[in-house]
Design a protein around this nucleic acid. Structure first.
Length: 452
RNA sequence: GGCGACGUGGCCGAGUGGCUGAGGCACCGGACUGCAAAUCCGUUUACCCGGGUUCGAUUCCCGGCGUCGCCUCCA
């Protein structure tokens, strides 16, 4: 069974399922106010790999990932550009899913929108006030974090320590809060801003409330896994948990956080630094599988640097796998190699050790190639099937031989004929011709094959 | 100031108290080929610094240096 590092307990431990055979996961989705960047890409790819692996393992996965479609940043941009905020969110969401499709990330089973859950959030906030865990000020409604047992579980830091430093930022509603760490559940709107009705006045929900309502609403109390980027650990996830605890409900049983994408200088890549790298640009420039490969070859909790050389190296690695897939298309099917499958499962179950899993794949490809060369069909078949299964399990689509048009096949045959006749000038000319058309030409003892 | 992560070969990136010290990319040599491509075989390069524990540390402990993250709404 899968073991994962749990941020709350700081140890790798078994992902204990609430219901046998079914996994409930909540993944914090994007705030739709701009194009998706590499950091979004990493998070979604990491959890896509997790999800595919769980499904491949025979589990029924329910993956809820929200769209935050009301937020200060959206309002700011709408104001700046003189557009309707809903115009921005609709467009950004389309772009988001286009990018996700581009990197082959499966759509979550549920995609709730914050704006669809305002009523539930208002109800929850009322409940929190009723329980004495929240209070109203002149600019909104706040959660009193001192009322929450165990606040700081994910931050791994006491309130006092957190306040001891770093506090020179501008804090929303700082003046009237009972405690500096209290956070907004509801923000009263200014004229012209999007607003919903509430018993305390027109306004909009704070960021941390939607995920509580949606996760508990769709997945229920004590759902299995809550995940997202390291940056969400605190305050976002801490504050989600705080609300659930204050409501007396059981929240996520396991917390998973992926590491950052860092730039060439080793600094975190984020919107706040302004060094945004657009995911769509990446897809335009590189085989979209390269990013998945880069991530598969590093551990999800480690920071990963994205560089041109890194992407190109991953691209070459994929080329090798594609060449193998094309070559192995002619191998007779067989049951997957059991030792390899066991290695793969062991690696994945050990905190999603994809680098180890990929090492096993590359090693198997080499052995399979050797077996094909040696005419050992049984070994080649078993390894090939296993490699294909593993790649499918982590969402790595290999490109086999593909469709070869009849006229191209004819040219390949002509190349072989020229070679047989020792007319190498003609053979080379045909090869150049096919290569210039984008075909990869491989000439073996058994004849010439072409693939894209 | 507090909390945390990290520092491995040309690059990326795993891992381990000692055994041939993953894997990818690159480079070099070889096999194969008419030449290539693909494939296979092989060589080369390592564990930030200083102490300590130990028979033995890259791996454990302490200190230092360096990099990075979080500490109120950034995946």
């Amino acid at each position: 069974m899968l073991h994962l590092y749990d941020t709350a307990t700081r140890e790798v431990r078994e992902l204990a399922l609430r219901e046998p055979g079914r996994v409930s996961i909540y993944l914090c989705g994007p705030t739709v106010y701009g194009p998706p960047h590499l950091g979004h890409g990493r998070a979604t790819l990491v959890y896509d790999i997790l999800r595919r692996y769980l499904e491949w393992s025979g589990l029924e996965v329910r993956l809820v990932s929200n769209i935050t479609d009301i937020d200060d940043k959206i309002i700011d941009r709408a104001e700046r550009e003189g557009r309707e905020w809903s115009d921005i969110t609709a467009k950004c969401e389309r772009v988001w899913f286009t990018a996700m499709e581009g990197i082959d990330v499966l759509r979550p089973t549920d995609v709730p929108h914050a704006t669809e859950y305002v009523d539930e959030m208002v109800e929850m906030i009322g409940d929190l006030i009723g329980r004495g865990a929240a209070y109203t000020t002149s600019d909104g409604v706040y959660l009193a974090v001192e009322q929450v047992p165990g606040y700081g579980l994910l931050a791994h830091q006491s309130l006092d320590d957190m306040l001891a430093g770093g506090g020179d930022r501008e804090v929303f509603g700082a003046g009237e809060k009972r405690h500096p760490a209290d956070f907004a559940l509801w923000k009263f709107s200014k004229p012209g801003e999007p607003a919903w009705a509430s018993p305390w006045g027109e306004g909009r929900p704070g960021w941390h409330s939607e995920c509580v309502v949606m996760s508990l609403g769709l997945l229920g109390d004590g759902f299995d896994l809550h995940c997202g980027g390291q940056d969400l650990r605190f305050p976002h996830h801490e504050n989600e948990r705080a609300q659930a605890v204050a409501l007396g409900r059981e929240f996520a049983r396991h917390w998973m956080h992926n590491g950052f994408v860092v730039d060439a200088e080793g600094e975190k890549m984020s919107k706040s630094l302004g060094n945004v790298s657009n995911l769509l640009d990446l897809i335009d420039t590189y085989d979209p599988r390269t990013y998945r490969m880069v991530l598969l070859q590093s551990h999800y909790r480690s920071p990963v640097s994205i560089s041109l050389t890194g992407l190109e190296a991953a691209g070459r690695a994929i080329d090798g796998l594609d060449a193998f897939a094309a070559r192995a298309a002619g191998v007779a099917t067989a049951a997957p190699d059991e030792a390899l499958m066991a290695d793969f499962r062991a690696a994945m179950d050990d905190d999603l050790d994809t680098p180890r899993a990929m090492a096993a794949v590359f090693d198997a490809v080499r052995r399979a190639n050797t077996a094909i060369d040696a005419g050992d069909a049984a070994t080649a078949g078993a390894l090939t099937t296993a490699v294909m299964e593993i790649c499918a399990a982590v969402g790595l689509r290999l490109e086999g031989p593909g469709e070869v048009p009849a006229e191209v096949a004819e040219r390949a045959a002509a190349l072989d004929a020229a070679r047989a006749a020792k007319d190498y000038a003609t053979a080379d000319a045909i090869r150049d011709e096919l290569t210039s058309q984008g075909w990869t030409v491989e000439t073996t003892r058994d004849g010439t094959t072409v693939r894209r």
